[in-house]
Every structure is written in structure tokens, then in C-alpha cells.
Design a protein around this nucleic acid. Structure first.
Lengths: 231, 231
DNA sequence: CCAAAAGTGTTAACAGTACACCCATGG
DNA sequence: CCATGGGTGTACTGTTAACACTTTTGG
């Protein structure tokens, strides 16, 4: 067993992931079930240690690389197919009973088309995609409940002024599908007519473009669109 | 010299501070001058190591406590008199030539009434309050230029929809003083009449209340106000 | 046919913008 | 008295919100 010695104490650093998707008009988060103590058997956020490198030339991995590695390990989804953003760093001295652990939390958004490909890890009752209407944040291990609440706050705030909603629809989508994403995240109903107008503005601004074909989500076949981005 | 041994390598964790104030209608940032290599003599952001604790019962200090401690050490200002918020965590593997160091960056806002009390550390040419019009971010040590840019982006974005501008005026202030803060941060001029209307709305919403007395900033004595907060 | 979603139109309220204008005061 | 900032009014514009309405299609 190798060992690493320093002249000052150092904390462990981990990354934790709040992975969201939308299935059945419902916001879901990816949870695992802890196999070891502490909090054995508890639901928790996926995460792991940041590789720090053995010293000298080996510096380990960038923080974002660590987050992407964990994301790939936990979801099995291909690199680059998932939106990832840093959330906040949690560093209360007593947040982990095992010792001093500082965690850099990230949130990720998985398209509903990819979500079913995520293999549920072990116990399906507590691991895998869990509806946020059922999950009690306070039942999560460590301070993961707080992290989850922080992530919810973030996406609820950002959905209005950023493009994150486009990360939670298929590559092509209808106006109603995009509206549904906004409604699920914000928890409020939007006027279809007014939402359509906002949508049209994005289209004239070149943020969205019409895609070939139509799709039947409700009663009538709707036009489908594609997100092309800003700038 | 004590030593601390772990079975896996661990990074050092630091906190870095981007401390802003406004003096002479100019946004300023607090810089220090590095006394040791690497980047000896370079301007840099104030910061320091997070105390991790020796293990067992001693877990060290909370991350936010570390940031507040550094803030107090670098500014000499009393606890609680300065606004502090976590910014972002920077963890590129090669960001520090000495080894693996992950830094949690914070930004702080110091009222102009307190700013002169901050003792300039050593060389006044590069340490102390430095105007952002003069500072070249790329001249800073480590990745501090990137951190500074990130902090600027944050406050420019937040000043519109949050209450951070009130942290950069004296306890009581005139409409023009508050407008000036917005102008300095955003780098654009605001119409005094229109700003006043926004201001009045805040007053009727109870966010602001009139304070006793008047003050002469320009030609005419202006009413002074106090921020009382929301909710 | 009918329920339900797709899609259009209309209106009032409101906040942002631009700009003209009077008031008070220190120099 | 006059330059300067304090302070008010107004007209225009674009966005949001509420809601009535027509069109299409699956069952």
C-alpha cells in the first residue's frame, strides 16, 4: 500500500453530481444506493474522489475532467452528450463523518432520449432515476439534500434566461415539448399562446430553426424545431 | 516538523479572494504583491490555505470560515461588515507550479466608507486598491487573471437583478450614489430620470426607506435612503 | 362528432427608453 | 447669475399576461 506524506494536513476532494432528466413530464434525479458505511443503504448523489496525482510530474486530473469521468462512469453515456456545469463547493468541516472532505458539486442535464440508456445501479427502488416529487432531500446521505436543493434552485433560476431547457428535450422538439420542460422545472403552467410568441421571437432571432417533419404529441401534428444557439 | 500521511494523494485546497470596492467613481480590486516564488513580485489575489485539521476530532475550519478569516487578515475589517459570496472553484491540474492546488474563489464587496481603513500591504504600486482600468488581468500570478474576469462577469450579471449594489454604497446613500455604482459596474450611463423611477418602485415595495437628513453630493442637497431588504 | 391540442389574434397593463423641463444651490 | 445636479412629467415602445377564438386530428 503506497502512502503520501505532506507537512500540512490536507482535505480529500470529491466531485458530486446532481444529474437531472425529464421523463413522463416529471423532473427526475439520478441517485445511487450506498453500499458501504457511512450511510450504508441510503440514497445518495453519485460522485467520487478527484485524482490528485502522486506528485512531481503527475498532477492528477483537472476538476472538470474528474466530474466528466464520474458522469461517464455513473451513466455510461458517451462523452459530450450531456450538459455539465459547476454548481457550488461544499466544505463544512463536519460534512463527512470519515474525515475532512470538500466536495465540488456539479449538475448535469440528460436528454429524455438518452435517459433510458442509463443503467440503473443495483437496487431500483432507491437507485436510478427518481422523481423529485417522491424524493425527500433530507433522506439523502451526507449533505446531499442541501446540494440537491441548491441544484434545483439553480436550474429554476437559469431556465428563464439561459438555454438550459434545450438540454432537456430531444434534438428536435415541438413548441409544446419545450413549454412542458419549462413548466416541469418551474412548477407552474404557462399560457400556450404566450409561450408560442416567446418561441417565435427566438426563431426570428435565429436561436431556433424549423426541422423537417412533424410530430404528434397530442391531438394534432405539430411542427418540430432544432436549437441552433446564439452568437 | 509534523507530517501527515494518507493512503491516496490529496490536493492542497486554498481560498482566493476577489475584493472589490468603489472609490472615486471607479471600480477597484484589492491586490497583494507576492513575496515568494513562484511569481515573486507579481501582483496576485489575496488568499491562503484552508486549514484541514490534523485528523480525528480536529477537522479544521469550514470553507466559508477560511474565506472570512483570509478576508479579515487581508483587510483588517471587522467580521460581518463585508459581503462575501462563493464564486467558482478552479482546479486545473497545472494551475500552480508547486503542485496540485485546488482553489475555491470568493468575491467580496467593501463599502467605500470602509475601503480607506484597509491597510495597503507593502508596495503601494502593486498592492492595495487597484483600479480595474489599470490592472491587466494577464499580469496576475497563477490563473488569478481568469478568476478576476470571472468575478467581474458575476457582479456585472448580478447587479441588475440582485441587491449587491447596496453593498457598495455607504449605509445611507442618495439616488445618484446608487446609480453611480450601477454605472461603474456595468460601464454604461443610465438615464437619471429612469433610474429614479426604478428607485421609487423599490421604495414603494419597501426595499428602500428614506433616512433622516440630506446630503450634498453635487449642486443641490439630495435626500438620503437606507436599504432595508426584501421579504 | 367531439375532446384536446395546435396555432392565431386582440387587448390591457406595465416596465424600459428617450427626452423636455423646472427647481435649488454653491460658487 | 449660471452651471450643475436634484427632481418631475410625458410620450413612445416592446414585453407580458389574460383570454377568446379557429383549425386539425385521433378515437
Amino acid at each position: 500500500m503506497p502512502s503520501y506524506t505532506y507537512s500540512y494536513p490536507r482535505p480529500s476532494v470529491t466531485v458530486d453530481l446532481v444529474v437531472f432528466t425529464i421523463l413522463d413530464n416529471d423532473l427526475k434525479v439520478l441517485l445511487i444506493r450506498r453500499g458501504q458505511p457511512p450511510f450504508e443503504g441510503c440514497p445518495a448523489l453519485p460522485g467520487g474522489f478527484v485524482l490528485a496525482g502522486t506528485g512531481g510530474d503527475d498532477r492528477g486530473e483537472d476538476l472538470e475532467v474528474a466530474a466528466r469521468r464520474e458522469l461517464a462512469e455513473e451513466t455510461g453515456l458517451p462523452e459530450g452528450s450531456v450538459y455539465l456545469e459547476q454548481l457550488y463547493t461544499f466544505g463544512a468541516a463536519d460534512r463527512d463523518p470519515r474525515g475532512r472532505v470538500i466536495t465540488v458539486a456539479w449538475y448535469a442535464l440528460v436528454r429524455p432520449t438518452l435517459a433510458p440508456l442509463v443503467m440503473a445501479g443495483g437496487d431500483a427502488a432507491e437507485a436510478g432515476w427518481r422523481s423529485l416529487t417522491e424524493v425527500d432531500p433530507d433522506s439523502l446521505a451526507f449533505d446531499h439534500g442541501r446540494i440537491l436543493r441548491c441544484a434545483l434552485e439553480r436550474i429554476r433560476g437559469k431556465v428563464d434566461y439561459s438555454d438550459i431547457a434545450f438540454e432537456l428535450v430531444p434534438e428536435t422538439f415541438t413548441v409544446t415539448e419545450l413549454r412542458s420542460v419549462h413548466e416541469v422545472i418551474k412548477g407552474t403552467a404557462y399560457d400556450p399562446a404566450n409561450f408560442r410568441r416567446r418561441f417565435k421571437r427566438m426563431q426570428t432571432d435565429g436561436v431556433i430553426e424549423q426541422a423537417p417533419g412533424r410530430r404528434t404529441t397530442g391531438a394534432r401534428r405539430a411542427r418540430v424545431y432544432r436549437f441552433v444557439g446564439r452568437g
